[in-house]
């Protein structure tokens, strides 16, 4: 299996992600944002960073880079598993591959902290991560407050598209455990084979660095499968 890690001008978690994948004994290669041939890739990660300097809106310009049209085709045709981390999540929302949008944190501050997230809906791409699973993962963002159009939240839950929610240490989803003002504490969403999350699993690969739960999340994603059309 080969994982492609997309690199936009301004990506800065690309090599951390490559390091994490290599640590998990996974073959991977970086894909420059101008590439349009994604054959040979079994999975794709959009890493964190500040693609195009976050100009206009976070992810808005990168969403229209040449590689994204190719990615969109692979998702539609072969249900390619795609994981967007932080800025990668923003890019996927801006492209319309995931519902909703990420706006400025309610605090007005950049937030860099270790948070507890709860798996809301189990997803076929994450075997072993049952609903209710708690993970400790770091966040580092200024535009991470998830929002949906008015009236859109119910459908998101009904369609099991809410993947992760910020929770307290006991796993209870409540207001004071929300670091950025996301609607319903949402930290990650999915649509089909595309998943996005604001926390950085590639920065939680070793318990001596605070948490190894990112290793658990990425390992699970690398094992997970998706039936085409599922």
């Amino acid at each position: 299996m080969t994982v492609g890690v997309l690199v936009f001008p301004g990506s800065n978690c690309d090599w951390d992600t490559v390091h994490a994948l290599e640590d998990l004994k996974t073959e991977c290669r970086t894909i420059w944002y101008t590439e349009t041939d994604l054959r040979g890739l079994d999975r794709v990660i959009l890493p964190g960073g500040f693609a195009y300097g976050d100009y206009l809106r976070s992810g808005a310009l990168a969403a229209h880079a040449p590689v994204m049209a190719a990615l969109e085709r692979r998702v539609a045709e072969t249900a390619l598993p795609v994981l967007g981390i932080c800025n990668g999540f923003q890019i996927l929302c801006e492209r319309g591959l995931l519902p909703g949008a990420l706006r400025n944190n309610a605090s007005g501050q950049f937030r860099c902290s270790l948070e507890t997230v709860r798996v809301t809906a189990a997803h076929p791409l994450f075997p072993g991560l049952a609903a209710g699973t708690l993970l400790r993962l770091p966040i580092a963002h200024h535009e991470g407050s998830y929002t949906v159009p008015p009236g859109g939240l119910g459908a998101l839950f009904e369609q099991q598209q809410v993947f992760l929610q910020y929770a307290d240490a006991d796993g209870v989803v409540q207001a004071y455990a929300n670091p950025n003002g996301s609607v319903a504490n949402i930290a990650g969403v999915s649509r089909g084979s595309v998943v996005g999350l604001m926390p950085h699993p590639e920065r939680a690969m070793e318990s001596y660095l605070g948490s190894a739960d990112g290793r658990r999340l990425l390992s699970s994603w690398l094992e997970g499968g998706m039936r085409h059309g599922a």
Binding site: R103, N104, S107
Partner: peptide, 13 residues
């Protein structure tokens, strides 16, 4: 412009 329902922390500050 941000929609009226969207919080604008920079505007508030």
């Amino acid at each position: 412009m941000l929609k009226p329902a969207i919080l604008d922390p920079a505007g508030q500050a």
